[in-house]
Amino acid sequence: MSGFGVPIIDAIIAFPIILIALFIPFLFLQYRRYGAVTFWHTVMTFSFVFYFTTAFFLVILPLPTEATLEHLQAIGAPTRNLDPLQVVRTFFQDNPYFHGGGLKAGLLDPSFTQAAFNVLLTVPFGMYLHFYFKRGFFTTLILTFMLTLFYETTQYTGLYHIYWRPYRLFDVDDLILNTTGGLIGWIFAPLLGILLPSRDRMDERARSLGHRVTLVRRLLSFGLDFVIATAISFVLTQILPNETSADILSYIVIWGVVPLLLGATLGQMVVRIRYDVAKSQRWRIIVRNALMVGFTIYFFPFWLQLIGSTGTVSAETLNRTYTFILLFAAPAVILVIDWLITIFRPQHKLLYEKISGAGSEAIVKTTTMADAPILKEQTTPQPEVDQQPTSRSERHH
């Protein structure tokens, strides 16, 4: 496969890896901004990532071989064109349509297709900037120019000196054509509103779901807390005599001291949730987190380890291992079912939350100035007497 096909296929192959790398940060950002992750925000964000990946691959691929670079050097191939609008002169001089050829031949000639490609390359970029990112015309102009300058610099430096000479031409006409494409995309972006909900509707939908403390939201906060606790434990292992002591002390800090002082763990604050207990009742948080850490970090992994050890333990201890597995099976299954219920009922209180009396609640963001018109509509009208003139001059008039 040649032409545009190879870079596009490569982008399709690379995209799942990029998706995996960006998905967790994307979730944190959405929960931090809106309190929820919605379908359209996810589609728009990662379709933009796929577009950008494809566009970048179209610019840099295929990568050259050493023989290709030596050939370009031997024939004295130019590395830059600083003559603006040379593409226009080339179009009128070389395009067969102006020399007796048919329209089809003119449209398929490189003098047209290369210019058209450079325009079309950034049309989606302008559409995303206008429709989803809500950027104005001049901001789109600047950002598109900066994007195409990045492309041209990448080409001129031989992929930032990975290669010893440029294998693509730095072309000032590409700067003009790419920037034009971004502006065309900005102009036609409102057409997307025929098929897609507006950005305001996407945001409104996300905020309307922000009060839910979903399983994903809980897992993200727990995961971040666990990473921080692991980092603290690593530091403490340089001081304390054994790893177990370092782990326990780090857990006490993350799930004990911090929420006792702030009413939420660091991970919870990132995804905008907190414990639903009064300040005077924060001792319940300690009970809750002690049960949570005991269940999720110690008990459940220990039970799974027992199951995994059945193929390696000696015959003398196998029966005892099976006994422990069956003994711990009921609480382990209850723990899993308790977590799974939150998938369908986000407001479901987990078992250790019920025992401790300390649940979780969402931190709803305060109203911004952009929401002022909505507040105005919901405000109760003032009595008529409050709207009478109060100053002497107003009464006179």
Rank of each mutant, 00 (worst) to 15 (best):
V385H: 09
K279N: 06
R201F: 09
Y156L: 15
V227C: 01
I18Q: 13
T65H: 01
A231Q: 04
R218T: 12
R33N: 08
A329W: 07
M127Y: 05
F170N: 06
K134F: 00
G308I: 01
H99T: 02
T54D: 02
D200L: 07
S250M: 02
H41C: 06
F295P: 00
A11L: 02
L291H: 03
N242P: 00
D174N: 04
I273S: 14
P241M: 04
P331E: 04
R201N: 11
V313H: 02
W255A: 06
S47H: 03
V88Y: 10
T321N: 14
N95W: 03
A372R: 07
I17N: 12
V287D: 11
R212A: 12
T45D: 13
H397T: 15
T79N: 13
T90F: 02
T144P: 01
E353R: 12
L224S: 01
L291F: 05
L129A: 10
A358F: 02
R165C: 10
L177V: 09
H99E: 00
L177E: 08
M44L: 11
L195M: 11
L262Q: 11
L327P: 01
L240I: 08
H161Q: 13
Y167W: 10
A77T: 12
K376M: 08
L72N: 15
T154D: 12
Y160H: 13
L72I: 07
Q382F: 10
L249H: 04
H41N: 15
G357F: 01
F299D: 11
T380V: 15
H130A: 14
I374N: 05
L149E: 09
I20A: 15
V364D: 09
Q388K: 12
M1D: 06
I176D: 05
G76F: 11
I184H: 03
T380Q: 14
Y167V: 14
F52S: 15
T390N: 15
I341Q: 01
F138C: 01
L291A: 09
G359K: 08
P259L: 09
F324K: 14
S2F: 04
F46K: 05
A55S: 12
V293W: 00
F300T: 12
H41R: 15
M146H: 02
V119R: 10
P259F: 04
T148F: 01
A55C: 03
T321D: 09
G357V: 03
V123T: 07
L192W: 10
G181P: 03
F299V: 07
E394P: 01
R80A: 14
